[in-house]
Computed example of a mutant assay.
Amino acid sequence: MKGDIPFRGIRFDSVTVAYDGNVVLDSLDLTVEPGEVMALLGPSGSGKTTALRAVAGFVRPASGRVFLGGRDVTDLPPYRRGIGMVVQQYALFPHMRVEENVAFGLKAQKVPRGEIRGRVAEALEMTGMAAYGRRYPRELSGGQQQRVAIARALAIRPGVLLLDEPLSALDARLRSGMLAELARLHRELPEVSILYVTHDQVEALTLADRIAVMDRARLRACGTPRELYRAPANEFTASFVGGANLLPVTVGEQGVRFGERRLEVSGPVPEEAAVLCVRPHLVGLGDGPNRISGTVREIQWRGATHRLYVEVDGHRVIADLRELKEPPAHGDEVTLHFSPDDAVLLTAGARHD
């Protein structure tokens, strides 16, 4: 299969989509490199699915252009774009057997009958569904149905694969297994460019080479998972990618101050009012650098960790701690700390506009 997949990428050139004057995707400039997995991550209504549908050809931009492999496809109908697509509802035909579902796109493309059987078998083998070709969708689990949907998309040998919340209908165990399978498929099909829409940060961090963070119809940040996690570009990215404590601080001649406390930060310091970002799992309990004290307002046991919600001068600080033998109780006064190397200063209200 590898040798037959065209070497392609995706480019959004100032793409805007509007419905009845309401802008749902605003001037998106973004490039997905050939062979790259790009996750579009954001809350509901952020514009991520609209961006994917613009690539597929299901919505037409009010302005801007969409390119595939350097070719302007803005005015092409979906069936001429050579794209594979998988949606969260699977969209399998219930009256067709698995092998017939997988063959559907090939027949629509008028692939010679003698070639279809081999390409269906190849796609089912890649997705671990070779033994299920004669079954109907109703005879499969949710995870198996999703594998069939992916096999159907791969059977046409697309240069671009679009995945729209493909795991959202699965339970946690199946989702974990499918994440591993998608990662394996990416390794086996390195030429395929994948645009992956999700609101689940774990999926994005696990699969993506880069993540584009969307909010309120606009791109807010784009980078590798490590870049966005370790050095977020703005408050929204910090809170949405991995979760974060965002503490208001002031910056002046006396350094960085949170209330009356002076804090040490090893990274660059903005010259104006700022927000301090520190990840919950990097906050420790007890004495240490950058000590802050407060009152426990809630404690949650999460198996491997305890999550503490601590009120510090009217601000909530979250600490994810490895399972404690004697965790503090609600109302206890505790001291927290974090390393200067684990604190990132963001300019207050900074946006990727």
Score class of each variant (00 low, 15 high):
228 L>G: 12
350 A>D: 14
292 I>D: 07
12 F>I: 01
155 A>Q: 05
164 D>V: 05
136 Y>W: 14
320 D>Y: 01
205 L>C: 02
292 I>M: 15
273 A>M: 02
127 T>N: 10
25 L>R: 01
69 G>C: 06
51 A>R: 00
245 N>K: 06
25 L>Y: 03
21 G>P: 03
197 V>M: 03
215 D>Y: 15
316 R>A: 08
97 R>I: 09
56 A>Y: 11
182 L>A: 11
351 R>P: 01
218 R>Q: 14
56 A>W: 11
264 E>V: 12
253 E>Y: 04
276 L>S: 08
3 G>K: 02
333 E>R: 14
212 A>M: 06
37 V>P: 00
42 G>S: 09
166 P>E: 13
246 L>P: 03
220 R>A: 14
167 L>E: 12
65 R>K: 15
87 V>E: 08
200 D>Q: 02
167 L>G: 11
49 T>M: 00
268 P>F: 05
264 E>T: 13
69 G>P: 05
87 V>Y: 15
84 G>Q: 08
111 V>S: 07
216 R>Q: 15
208 A>H: 09
153 A>H: 04
222 C>S: 01
103 A>M: 11
171 D>E: 10
215 D>K: 13
135 R>I: 14
62 A>G: 12
78 P>G: 10
234 N>H: 10
343 A>F: 13
79 Y>S: 12
147 R>Y: 09
69 G>I: 11
111 V>C: 07
220 R>T: 13
58 F>H: 02
34 P>M: 05
204 A>Q: 05
184 R>H: 07
105 G>E: 12
89 Q>M: 13
182 L>P: 12
159 G>Q: 09
163 L>A: 07
4 D>K: 06
37 V>F: 13
135 R>C: 14
211 I>Q: 11
217 A>R: 04
158 P>H: 05
351 R>Y: 13
275 V>F: 04
93 F>S: 07
242 G>R: 03
26 D>R: 02
167 L>I: 06
93 F>C: 02
183 A>K: 14
168 S>C: 10
184 R>K: 13
31 T>W: 00
46 S>D: 11
229 Y>D: 03
219 L>K: 04
243 G>S: 10
326 E>T: 12
278 V>T: 09
3 G>I: 00
130 A>D: 15
